[in-house]
């Protein structure tokens, strides 16, 4: 039963239970239970937090990607942007700038990358997927030009391993900067997408761009803002990755654009736009993290992990839509 506004007419409780986020949540619980029963170390929160930090950086970019996908677009250049911003920051540091000045420079690079994507996509009406496939090579190419096959490192002591700085501890479990930054960012993005005018505009652009234009939404500006945001957050994530790895190479996060998109889609965002959920993405990021670490702990080889990831992505789409699928089988 759907009302005119697309919401369920039944009670609030059933509305809560019919949300798409339950699927990644269920999968998350299942994988947690399986992993915990398979391995001793997985029941240790301290271990979990220690090993999962590295996926949080990609998780941050998955949040902005949720907004972009909700607006009916895609940004495949995210890992390349991360790499490019980190490269510029590292180069600036090695050129003699203090690290305090190099960091804003890296963030600015992220913004600039986002601006290039945004201008091409919003103001020249080019398809986002193809543009970002092109700029993916451009951005990574920039860092390859400057770094080549070497790596840049030797950053000041305070910059290295930021993620290990404990903000607070629960027993032995350490909540580091990266984890808290991810959680805070997720909360901020939840408010942006679901509680602000900007979020409504993003969803409007994704649902029906023509209708959004007629409702006096400046769709071009919304798109540009989205890509600027994506570039900026990618910049932050890139610098955090650099701090964790203690160095930059041109192949930082190579081929992980697919992981980011998978996190967003697992979270229930619709690839055609108009529908996306930050809570869903948040759960999906946790799911991917638990899956990856859980499978490692359970001694599943990395190749079998890949197979599992693919299967879970497919299952997470198929399970919630079984009713729809049976119907879809019948109609055109």
């Amino acid at each position: 039963m759907k009302g005119l506004d697309g919401r369920s007419k039944r009670g609030k409780l059933s509305a809560v239970f019919s949300r798409r986020e339950w699927v990644p949540f269920g999968l998350l619980l299942a994988t947690l239970i399986v992993s915990a029963s398979l391995s001793e170390s997985f029941r240790d929160l301290a271990y979990l937090l220690r090993t999962t930090t590295r996926y949080m950086e990609l998780g941050m970019t998955a949040l902005t990607m949720t907004l972009i996908v909700s607006a009916g677009m895609i940004d495949l250049s995210v890992p390349a942007t991360m790499c490019c911003s980190a490269t510029v920051a590292a180069l600036a540091f090695h050129a003699g700038l203090p690290m305090e000045a190099a960091i804003p420079l890296g963030l600015l690079t992220g913004l600039a990358c986002g601006a290039v994507n945004g201008l091409l996509i919003a103001y020249l009406n080019l398809p986002s997927m193809i543009v970002t496939i092109g700029t993916m090579s451009v951005f990574r190419g920039i860092s390859q030009i400057f770094i080549g096959d070497k790596s840049l490192g030797k950053f000041p002591e305070w910059f290295n391993s930021i993620e290990k700085i404990p903000v607070f501890m629960i027993g032995k479990a350490r909540f580091g900067v990266t984890i808290l930054a991810f959680i805070l960012l997720a909360f901020a993005f939840y408010l942006v997408l679901h509680k602000t005018g900007f979020g409504r505009k993003v969803l409007a652009v994704g649902a029906n761009e023509q209708a959004a234009i007629f409702s006096s939404v400046n769709t071009r500006r919304v798109k540009l803002q989205l890509f600027l945001l994506s570039g900026f957050v990618s910049g932050i994530a890139g610098l955090l990755t650099m701090s964790r790895l203690l160095l930059v190479r041109y192949d930082m996060n190579l081929n992980s654009e697919i992981d980011v998109v998978a996190m967003v889609l697992l979270g229930g965002a619709e690839i055609s736009g108009g529908n996306g959920s930050i809570i869903g993405t948040f759960i999906a990021v946790l799911l991917v993290i638990v899956l990856k670490t859980g499978l490692i702990v359970a001694n599943v080889t990395s190749d079998a992990q890949m197979f599992m990831m693919g299967l879970i992505l497919l299952l997470s789409i198929i399970i919630p839509n079984i009713g729809k699928l049976v119907q879809g089988f019948r109609d055109r």
Binding site: S272, D303, L325
Partner: peptide, 27 residues
């Protein structure tokens, strides 16, 4: 089958099978 008969968006299906087939190759 997944795309045409179950009407799941192609990008999601092929993203999933992309991982699945590559993993299977390794296995």
């Amino acid at each position: 089958f997944l795309i045409a008969y179950l009407r799941i968006p192609p990008i999601i299906v092929t993203l999933g099978t992309m991982n699945a087939y590559r993993g299977l190759t390794f296995i």
